[in-house]
Design a protein around this nucleic acid. Structure first.
Lengths: 204, 204, 204, 204
DNA sequence: CGTTAATCGAGACGGTACGTCCTGTCTTCGG
DNA sequence: CCGAAGACAGGACGTACCGTCTCGATTAACG
């Protein structure tokens, strides 16, 4: 996910010369970022120096692994995400609820918030975009497969635009996490109501 | 929108003593922000010093008007938004398309991007939240009234959750603007397809 | 001596725009350097960061005045040097003793030591060479005039090489200060013995 | 000169176990230092890392041989010095010229410059002082013996202060090398003029 | 018409963080 | 045990901004 230079050189897995990286440092650094994040720090307010101090690590040890603050924080946030959830596979509706809930689990509004802070950087730096996709795309692909199955089983309209529906499911969820200063839509039951709303439609 | 100290103190409009503010400075500053923004600068990468230099203005002249960088940029971005659109009032569907299109007009993906950059700050500083709401809430209120009218006319289901529907309309639009590096959903016809999707629902 | 940009523009003495430099900062910075130097710090071991902290000043305030550490320390050391000494003018021998003693006064071995530390930089950077000359050349010129007077009065040989004699007077004095770890020549009476030795010569 | 740990421990010459040191590494390291020095690098600007890279050697290989940068550079500079010169033994004047010329040979102003750069470190670290003395003291002792012989043969005054005279001979020579940016005393004939000046004295 | 007071541009101020570089030590593997 | 390679904690470098402040010079309305 990070690594930069010492990456496995395609196939042959040549052992890198020199002293190997210390895996404990990786952990300590990511843990420090998560701690600072959970202490209510803004992403902009988190400094590499503070992370290094908290992790008991030299700054160079961080810069050896990540090119800049954004790459580090993306990686740290990715660690917040749990594994892909197991789907019951019985109804499209239940699977979507499971997926969206999992996307919000643990961090709930945290991931959305951090992601938003990073977007300006995401949009600029291709390598960070790749990191971000590596985290999110598997989840999005899983959601697509649920939608395709729903079309096959007849649960969903067969002219459904899958990518648009993806947006309709994830967009409101993300926004809901972002604008927490305006909680006109309560947390409890939100995911279910969202999925039902998307399925049923607003028209009479 | 800005002003801070020399603001008209409720009613009486007492003329402030001393040299009055220079209105050209306001313009030059906002123009400078917009220029920097349109040159592809990240919000984080725009510095007050750069804005001052570009506008040919002293830093203090900026800080006299805005409390900090975020307030300034919010104000500048608000200037990008056009006036509230006029609604035909014939069908809910058409009015929603008009509203969402207006929200994206001019800046399209620009406003979403800048907004997202500002979220971390929005979430921290109440006065900035107020500024932000002053820009967006009138638009959201207008959208609510369209939805309420739709329920009244029978175009929309009468058990519709208005706030949730608001999210379903604005969330995908915002996300679509944000993740422009992944344009799986094309720009042309997007708004119409989104509104139709929300109205119709995904279920068969 | 320092200044860099805000220098008087040749003649007209135009007042610089903007907030003027704080003279107390200059003093505090130079005092901090002298303190650190007198606490036995090596020149190499003195950091700008330490100077700034000790002087209660931001690093930028130092870099605004001096281009680098060497220029700063030269300036600080120059402040150690007292004013040019008054010469009795009776005998060449006594005047030389007075001059050399003055060159060693206050700092004794300190100035030599610091100067030696700075030589590698002196030799590289022309602007620092100028600063250094501004401090030392007036003293050297005074010594030359004493030698010329001695030739005129017949106290010194009239074929005397003045520049070489200058070296013979200042070189041993400097070296004596430098190699204090090998004090085979005691401090007391050193200057008198040196001047007498130079005058008399070693030959029988 | 270097060695440190694997040195022959007084007498017994026990064969060290394990792989023996690579003598080519010693050479490569010293050569690298001399190269960097001759490329106009300041002593302060020469880093162990650069030396290691240039020599194609690991940093540890350097630190195994020398305690720190200063010790390494002293050793490298010592290698610049040729062997002790042979003295004609006919006149004190000629022998002093030979000795001082030898001290300046090859490196001329180079050795003075490097020595001056090292002084701050010399003054701090006793082990480096010892290394430095090991290089210079034999030369100084040889000069002392010439002076003593001169007193015995009647060429020099019998109340001559030998240590002071040593300073009078070496100090100007060193200073002349240092302040090459102010060449008021030309190189050619310098040593002869210095020795003659010291012998004859300045008085009429 | 001169005072008064807030404005302007410029830029210095004490700070904080950046990302780079180097130090001297340690840790791996292969000779 | 030596060697090249390179990671490690630490710390200084010189730069860039932050938000505040202090200058001299404007620029009104008030007295």
């Amino acid at each position: 996910m990070n690594d930069m230079t010492t990456a496995s050189l395609a196939g042959q897995e040549r052992k890198a010369p020199g002293r190997p990286r210390n895996a404990q440092a990786d952990e300590a650094i990511l843990r420090a970022v998560l701690e600072l994040l959970s202490e209510g720090q803004t992403v902009a307010a988190i400094s590499i120096e503070a992370v290094a101090a908290r992790a008991g690590v030299g700054k160079a040890t961080i810069y050896r692994r990540w090119a800049n603050k954004e790459a580090l924080i993306i990686d740290a946030v990715a660690a917040m995400k749990g594994p892909l959830p197991a789907l019951a596979g019985e109804s499209v509706r239940d699977d979507l609820v499971t997926l969206i809930t999992a996307n919000r689990s643990g961090h709930a509004r945290g991931f959305s918030k951090v992601t938003a802070c990073l977007l300006p950087e995401l949009l600029r730096d291709d390598s960070i975009v790749e990191m971000y996709k590596a985290v999110t795309e598997p989840r999005r692909e899983l959601m697509r497969s649920v939608l395709r199955r729903g079309i096959a089983t007849g649960e969903l309209r067969d002219d459904l635009d899958i990518e648009l529906t993806l947006l309709m499911l994830t967009g409101p969820s993300m926004m809901h996490g972002l604008f927490q200063w305006q909680p006109r839509v309560p947390d409890e039951g939100f995911v279910e109501k969202l999925v039902d709303g998307v399925l049923r439609g607003a028209a009479a």
